[in-house]
Amino acid sequence: MKHLIVYAHSNTQSLNHSILETTVHALKEQGHEVVVRDLYALQFDPVFTPKDSEAMRAGHIPADIQTEQEYVRAADVITFIYPVWWAGLPAILKGYVDRVFSYGFAYASDETGVVQLLKGKQGFMISTHGTPNDIYDQIGMTEGMRMTTDAGIFGFVGIEAVGHLFLGSIGYLDAAGYEQLLSQVNTTVKELFPHA
């Protein structure tokens, strides 16, 4: 299978970066093809401008958007790896969705309503946050984030959400705790995406 990983963390020494490396390694061990789009390294512009909108209405996709859409088009599986900031996606990743998952590419509409244009693909998310998981579970935040990402992004365009790892208590664990999280990532990835 062809995997596209969209990665959104600015610090190459972060846990998110270790999660990225673990995910890539696990997928390659299973024989999958992997492409990583590191949004900070790419200096991806997250702002969907009036100029973008005008160009797209005229049928001219801006080059940076077109590049990312080609990666999405080629992928069987799309994975987002990111830290939760203010109960949602970092701005650079939200802007990626705003600009790349655009009308006419990821979805359209007709007399029946929304037409999902990315059916046949799978989606997976790994997100980190400082709050312990059980607290987010109790107050409904985990389910709220799952709805806005898995259903609100992937589901809206026809991508089948096959999993979402919510990794909590980041910043408060010891070394063994972080190793356990990386082991969980490795195991989950291999279970979801067995040998190609």
Results as ranks from 00 to 15, higher is better:
M1R: 10
H9V: 04
N11G: 02
T12N: 00
S14T: 04
N16A: 03
T23E: 04
A26S: 15
K28I: 13
E29W: 06
E29P: 02
E29A: 08
V34I: 00
A41V: 12
A41Y: 11
A41R: 14
L42E: 14
F48H: 11
E54T: 13
E54L: 13
M56A: 07
G59F: 04
A63R: 12
E68V: 11
R73V: 10
A75F: 15
A75D: 14
A75V: 15
D76G: 13
F80V: 00
P83Y: 02
L89W: 07
R99C: 06
V100I: 13
G104Q: 12
A106P: 10
Y107G: 09
A108Q: 06
V114M: 08
Q116W: 09
L118G: 04
G120Y: 12
K121V: 04
M125E: 01
I126K: 04
T128C: 07
H129K: 07
N133V: 13
N133E: 15
Y136L: 13
I139M: 10
G140N: 11
T142V: 10
T142Y: 04
G144I: 06
G144M: 14
I153H: 00
F156I: 03
V157W: 01
G158R: 10
V162E: 14
H164D: 09
H164T: 10
F166G: 02
G168H: 03
I170D: 00
G171S: 07
L173G: 14
A175T: 14
E179N: 15
E179Q: 15
L182E: 11
Q184G: 03
V185H: 09
V185Q: 08
V185C: 09
E191W: 10
H195R: 10
